[in-house]
Every structure is written in structure tokens, then in C-alpha cells.
Design a protein around this nucleic acid. Sequence first.
DNA 1: TTGTAAGCGTTATCAG
DNA 2: CTGATAACGCTTACAA
Lengths: 334, 334
Amino acid sequence: MKPTIYDVAKKAGVSIATVSKVVNNTGRISEKTRSRVKEVMKEIDYSPSSVAAALTGKRTFTIGVLVPDIANPFFAEVARALENHARMTGYAIILCSTDYQREREQDYLELLLKKQVDGIIIATEARDWKVFKKLLDKNIPLLMFSIDHPSFSSHVVTTDDIRGGYLAGRYLLDNGHRNFAVIVEENRESGRLRLEGFKQSLMDAGIELSDSFVVFSKSRVEEAKKAAKQILALNNRPTSVFAATDLIAAVFMNEARKANISIPEDISVIGFDNTIHAEIADPGLTTIAQPTDELARYAIHQLLESIEKPNSLPGHRIMLAPELIERDSVKNLN
Amino acid sequence: MKPTIYDVAKKAGVSIATVSKVVNNTGRISEKTRSRVKEVMKEIDYSPSSVAAALTGKRTFTIGVLVPDIANPFFAEVARALENHARMTGYAIILCSTDYQREREQDYLELLLKKQVDGIIIATEARDWKVFKKLLDKNIPLLMFSIDHPSFSSHVVTTDDIRGGYLAGRYLLDNGHRNFAVIVEENRESGRLRLEGFKQSLMDAGIELSDSFVVFSKSRVEEAKKAAKQILALNNRPTSVFAATDLIAAVFMNEARKANISIPEDISVIGFDNTIHAEIADPGLTTIAQPTDELARYAIHQLLESIEKPNSLPGHRIMLAPELIERDSVKNLN
DNA sequence: TTGTAAGCGTTATCAG
DNA sequence: CTGATAACGCTTACAA
């Protein structure tokens, strides 16, 4: 079977305490024995069990990440970035894709608890804050990623969605647009905020967005298609559309083309996220970029901090600024 | 702190052995004490530590999954499917995205070993089979996902790539095409096989594919762009292109459009994977679908099997048939 | 500088 | 049917 610390100790003719010390670089040991032990470790290919280590009260060096759908490019990017930053600090990530189902979220949370993860990053939009209260009671570090709620006392790292929406609106206005439609992501606070920011920019220009020009959709192909059709069927069609995610925007462009409506000639489109969809779309999709990598860096950093010194500081709220990426999906009407 | 089995035992006035038994439904215990214990568990919100359980020689109920890039839609889909099937059997997944770097693969493998995962699914194309030998020596169940190599003795679950390539070629031929270019994924055995199948179909029709019509690219935007440009610059441009992944195909379509070459009028395109890119592309991308969900199901099933009865059966090779999804990116020349 | 031994939270074996 | 108790592989005072 897998060699244990005892095997190393015996073969090196020392005690397991000594071996442990050289493995962890703790305590003081002579250079001689240290190298002897290391040699033996190589020889029998010993790799310490982090399971056993975790049991002694140390960390598991594992963090759980909850996302609604890993196949969604934005969350895939997020997962990649998180994982990257985690790896650099020796942490592994247990990925939990809840498929937008609350029940699975619950299940996963329980699983993570059993596994004694050192912390949890939550990027799913849960509706039941009680669950989180429970987690906090258990003193397990939590970090809300890209979601926010006034009741959170844990750390929050998000994009400034209001500002993102505002940027989008501002840009369309600057390009001479006065008639807008919006496709908002359903059930997502971030969607609500993006809409709010968007509306704000219009209001600053003295324009009001009527409810009939706001439609809802999840960031999934089928639903987005429906939303797109709904907008394309409006009798007084807007000159521009703000889509809450690039995926929705891409689908919209697609549907528009099928209906022989050309972009950006007949209708302009602006997205959100700056995922691969924006890059690949034709014409290139102008969009609001989330600083994914930075978000991830902050998230991991904050989480590790509260893992290292528990019950310290109350949760920070870190809100990073989004950025407009100009491509070719918006026509200048001026 | 987190309540332990002792807390439950004390409060319920029984021994920890008894508690353990009701938790695991092992041994026989009176209905009375069982319910009493359960009650207490609820009361103090006890959740057993799988870390401690793992130490006693039981499983960790965790499997590691190595993919080259989680942000690649195909692998994102794979991850989702694997995770889904794993969850149903109580397993969690540690996600490792190696960014195509061999070194990271090594690091991750070591990490997984330390964490004592019950099994590992590998979907990265490693060049160093020795590493796997080492893993096999350690008796940890391995499953190769979507990669294959004659030397593997572990289970393998893949799409029948040769057949996939063949299907693509056959389809183009059936549509009257006689001039082809191929963009192959670099360094991937699957890419090689797809090309082989493609060539085979041409050979069956008495056509040979010249090397100058085969270009290489990773499944990433930047590289795909280069590859696309390379093909578009050929002096005797082919009437059709077989791209080794949808992403590459999508990028190609994009570049073609920029060069004022319309699809499928001027040039037909067929992809591979049937990811969201194929669905969203305009025109819809005809492609070879991998049965992702089924692949995942088989993978998890096989892996769990060899976890449950170790050192039994030699590795199976399961090769699922791909399927052609017809959309609008191929023109019928007949 | 090195070793002894207690403990981490479970499971499993045996005795009662 | 229930309870002591050893064992799992490691960390960490505390002794030597």
C-alpha cells in the first residue's frame, strides 16, 4: 500500500516526529538527518496524506466553489481563474455546479461541510439566506462571488454591476441611440443591478425606459432565443439592445440575422461579460468586460485571509470596475 | 467547534460505536435508540467528518478530474456532465485545469495523491506515460477520458474519433465537395485520429489530401485565427474545411467573413464537438457531436467500478459513436 | 537535535 | 443490541 510516515521513519532509522519535521520544515534538525530522510522519501516515493494531516486540526487545503452552471462561459472563466489562483497557494478546488437548482446547492453545501473544506466561494444566486447563516454559525469562511445582498456579513467580491449597466447605457446614448430594449437575466441580483445602472444612464439623459422594452431570460440558448424573438416582434422596434450577458447577446444577434435584420445596421447590440462569445461573434460584440482574473485574485486572497485569521474583520465588499470593450456591434447614429 | 460523534454520543447517552452504527446503518440497533440518536443529531446539527472516516481506510468519495482547459466549452460540458453523474453517487470532484502545461499536470497529480482521491479521470493529453505508470503502481484507479494510447492498461472512454472524422469527410463528399482543408488540433491524439478518419473517407473516394491543406492549431482563439488566415490565403482555396473543434470552426467562419468570403456560399465548414459555438454560429455550424453526457456516464460508472473492486478486470476501452448534426454551414454542390 | 506519546474523529472488531 | 478499544497517518507539546 501507500507508504506512510512510519515506513520512512523505519527505513531512515529515525522517529516519525523527525520525519514530520523535515516534511513540514518545522523544528530544528541536523542537515545530515534531513537529507537522509529526504533521500528515503524519494526512494520509497512517499507522499504525505493530507487526509491524516487535516484530522489533526490542520487545514484540508481545499475550498468549495459553487457556480450555477459550469458550462456557462462566464463561470467557466471564473472557475479557471479561481482555480489558478488557488493552485498557486496550494489549495485545491471542489467544483459544484448546481444547475440553478436550490436543492443541489443545499446538497453540495452539506457535502462540503462533511469534507471540511477550509472555505467556500459562492457564485450561485440563492434565495435562502438562512442556509448561509448556518454556515457562518459553523464559522466556516464564506465569500460571495459576483453576488451580493445587504444581509451578507461575509466578504463579497463582485463587479460593479450598476456601473456596468451605466457604461452600457452611456455608450449607446453617446452613439446617438434613443430607443432601447434590455434583456435582463432572471433571478440574478446582478441582472437587476445592471438594469438599474442602465436605466440610470438614460434618466440622466432624461429618457425613461418603458417596461415593455424589458424582457427576462436566463443565460441559456433556448430562453435567450425566446427573449430575442420577443424583442424582434415589438412593433416599434428599438435601435439598440442591451443584453445582460454575452451569450444572450450572441443569441440575439443570431435571431436577428435569421429575421433579416442586420447588426449593427438595423439594430445595435451591447453585451456583458466579455466572454469568448463576444470575441467570436460577428460582428464583434461590444460589451462590458468583467475583470474576471482580478475578481478571482481578490476572492482567493480574501478567503484565504479569513481562513488564516478566523473571526476577525467583518466582511469587506470589494467591487471592481467593469470596462467597456468596443467592437463593432453598435452603430453610431450621429 | 463542529460537533463530533462524541458530542452526539454523550447527549444521547450512548457510546460512539452506537452513533457510528446509526449513521452508517450498519450493525443492529433498537429502533428506540436509533431514533433517539437521530434526534440528537438533528438537534446539534451534527454532520460526520468524511476526513476522519477516510482515515480509517474508507474512501474519500472524491475523484480528481484533469482537463487541459476548463474554459474550453467542450471540457466545460464534460466537467458538468462528470460532476453531475458523480454527484448522483455521492462523489465530489476536484477540478484541475492544467492550462495545457505538463508541469501543472504533474503538480496536480501529486496533489490528488496527497488528498487520497479514490480515482482520477484524465482528459489531458500527457506526453509522459511514465507518470501514469507510477499512478497505476500505486493502485489508484485511473480512467482516460477522450484520450487513448495503446500502452494504457487502464479504462478508456472516448468518442470514436476516427469514425467522427470519417463522418465529416463522407458528408462533405456526399455534398459534392472535392477540395478540402483541415485544421487539426495540435498535440492531441484525438486530433490525429479525426484527421485519419477524414483522410480515410477521402481515400475511399479515391482522393488524396495534400499536406499543404492540413494546418495545425490549438483550440484557442488566437491560434485558430492564424490557422484560418493560413487557409484563406491558399492560392487554390478549397471548397470546404473540416475543423477539429467547433471553436476553431467558429473562428474560421469569422475570419472568412472578415475576408468577405461567405459561408457556406464560398466555402463550407464542418466542425467537431457540437458545443454551444456550433449552435450560436451563423450560419448554424454543421458538426460532429460527441455524446458528452453518455461519455461521462460511462466514465463515472467504470471508474467507480474499479474503485469498488480494485485490481480486477483489465481496462476496458469504450468508444462511443459520434453523430453528425446537420446545420447550415455546408453547401450542397450537387 | 531527536524521540515519546497524546490526540484528531471515525470505523470495526470483539466482548458483554 | 450495545460498548470498549485499537487502529488509521499525521502533528505537536514535552522530554530526553
